[in-house]
């Protein structure tokens, strides 16, 4: 099937319907494997068993940033090709991104209480994630304020792009402002500093979270396409109603 066919919403719906059971199965399987590996992971010599919180905290942080990147890529479809499916992808991604950002913040707070002695510290990373969360809420608010879907998509696209430009600056400013957290330790040129017994479960959980995100996003996109159909039909019905000019 050529890739162009995927751009047709009806084909997309058919493909999603076929793919969905497999995706759900794969997600459940990945979580089962990941959680078993997490259960077997040793405690950290400093942080004890609380290191188990990391296995949800870090994947949700990755998704929080990744979903904004996904929305930024979708904006090219919106602004350059004016493709409705790109609008749908961007709109469906925003609440999911906000949810994972919230999960990252909540687990970070629950991890911070035993480690730092307080639920919230104005640490650089937590603070930038909080700003990211506020920006997700802003995008959602914009989507919910503009009535016409394609105009809402273009407004949200501009905001998403400005955010994508600004987020690295915010991250860097906040780092400059206050650095208390550990330096990034997974992605390093010299290789991961985390011991493999911790790293492997973390990567397994990251794969599981990624599959979950893809499944939820496709399902939310499907809902969004249906919502637009309902909207179109209601507009047509309103136009055809007796008493109108046409």
């Amino acid at each position: 099937m050529p890739i162009v066919d995927l751009a047709n919403p009806s084909r997309f719906l058919a493909l999603t319907a076929r793919l969905m059971p497999w995706l759900i199965g794969a997600t459940v399987l990945a979580f089962a494997v990941g959680l078993v590996m997490v259960k077997g992971a040793p405690d950290d010599y400093q942080q004890g068993a609380t290191v188990k919180i990391m296995f949800i905290h870090v994947p949700s942080a990755w998704l929080a940033m990744g979903i904004w990147a996904l929305m930024a890529i979708a904006t090219f479809g919106t602004l350059v090709w004016r493709h409705p499916l790109a609008d749908v992808a961007a709109k469906a991604a925003a609440p999911i991104g906000a949810a994972f950002t919230a999960l990252c913040l909540i687990t970070g707070m629950l991890w911070g209480r035993p480690m730092w002695g307080t639920y919230w510290v104005w640490d650089a990373r937590l603070t930038s994630v909080l700003v990211l969360f506020l920006m997700y809420l802003g995008v959602i608010a914009l989507w919910r304020t503009v009535e016409d879907p394609s105009r809402a998509a273009r407004a949200a696209a501009i905001l998403t792009l400005v955010g994508a430009l600004n987020l690295p600056i915010i991250k860097w400013s906040v780092d400059w402002w206050n650095t208390l957290h550990q330096p990034a330790s997974v992605v390093r040129l010299a290789g991961p500093a985390i011991h493999p017994t911790i790293l492997m479960p973390l990567l397994a959980m990251a794969v599981a979270f990624l599959l979950l995100m893809v499944t939820l996003h496709l399902a939310a996109m499907r809902n969004e396409i249906l919502r637009r159909r309902v909207r179109t039909l209601m507009l047509m019905q309103a136009q055809a109603a007796p008493g109108s000019a046409s």
Binding site: V131, L134, M135, L137, G138, A141, L142, L159, V162, G163, N166, I169, I170, W172, S173, V174, W176, W177
Partner: peptide, 14 residues
């Protein structure tokens, strides 16, 4: 206000 304020964080910091 909701859209603009998060974007002004770096300006405020510096």
């Amino acid at each position: 206000a909701v859209l603009v304020l998060p974007l002004t964080v770096p300006v405020l910091i510096f």
